[in-house]
Write a protein that binds this DNA or RNA. Structure first.
Lengths: 156, 156
DNA sequence: GTAGCTATACTTAGCGA
DNA sequence: ATCGCTAAGTATAGCTA
């Protein structure tokens, strides 16, 4: 930038808000990219004490791609592992749908739902045994590798 | 970079992990900077459904500055702040206590505890005003970080 | 597997319309 | 205030050890 960033609170309100909006957007993008690149579900929560706003970013786009990839690969195969992951993904999708419907409601309710969604997804995973999770992980890994190889073969 | 990033799941496990760690660090920094520059409390939560890991990055340093600034600017209105702080401290103490009791149990149980604390936070949210949510956010961050630190310490 | 490096892609502060 | 621009900082992919 024209000037090296001084890492301190920006006292000017307008400048602070401008920076806030720009960086907020950047963080959302980064979190979304992490989800897509590494196949994890992630979210960011920012609470602004000056205007009592709470903003929550479930990582929709990144997670969506993971879900889609899973559904595509599971269409051809019906193993136990796939059923398990399918169940998890279905519930994630359902939770995400509910969140979408609350978009216009009170910020407090968004936090509520976020927590609920976290619980749902976590409980599903927790219901699996350690061995099942390991198998599931390996299976998913293998499937994703196969797909990637296919894509690479086509592109080359 | 040497090559333009293709925004897709990284099939190679080692490369994915390396990218994950690098970007995770970058996101923490960004969130921390946003907190400092704009005076907001923020956190990032990344959940990997395939290995039951939940990683939480409370923006410790940034949030700390926010708390200090908040307390300084509202020194005239200390009654309410002190009450809020008391509630937060009580809950941190409770969380530590429960965590201590799980010291010798299985790692899976610690995940259960994490989610239990999430639910607790949710219930607490329901009883708070929008103004109070800022402190709650910080509370959640601290509590989850404590648990994360404890788990890491045990696993190392 | 992870720690440091560097070239390059990406982000963003300050402006101007 | 919001947008687009672009210079100037940052983050990080691919490497090396």
């Amino acid at each position: 930038m024209r000037q090296k960033v001084k890492l301190a609170f920006i006292s000017n309100g307008a400048a602070r808000k401008a920076t806030y909006n720009k960086r907020k957007k950047g963080i959302i993008k980064k979190v979304s990219e992490l989800s897509t690149l590494c196949g994890v579900s992630a979210c960011a929560i920012i609470s602004n004490p000056f205007n009592s706003q709470i903003e929550v970013w479930p990582d929709r786009e990144g997670a969506k791609k993971v879900i889609e990839r899973y559904h595509n690969s599971s269409a051809k195969d019906e193993t136990k592992n796939l059923n398990q992951e399918g169940l998890i993904m279905q519930n994630i999708a359902k939770a995400r749908d509910r969140l979408r419907k609350l978009e216009n409601k009170k910020p407090e309710k968004k936090i509520d739902l976020l927590m609920h969604e976290c619980m749902q997804n976590k409980n599903l995973v927790d219901n699996l045994t350690a061995e099942e999770l390991k198998d599931l992980d390996e299976f998913i890994e293998k499937k994703l590798k196969e797909e990637d190889d296919k894509i690479n073969a086509i592109e080359t």
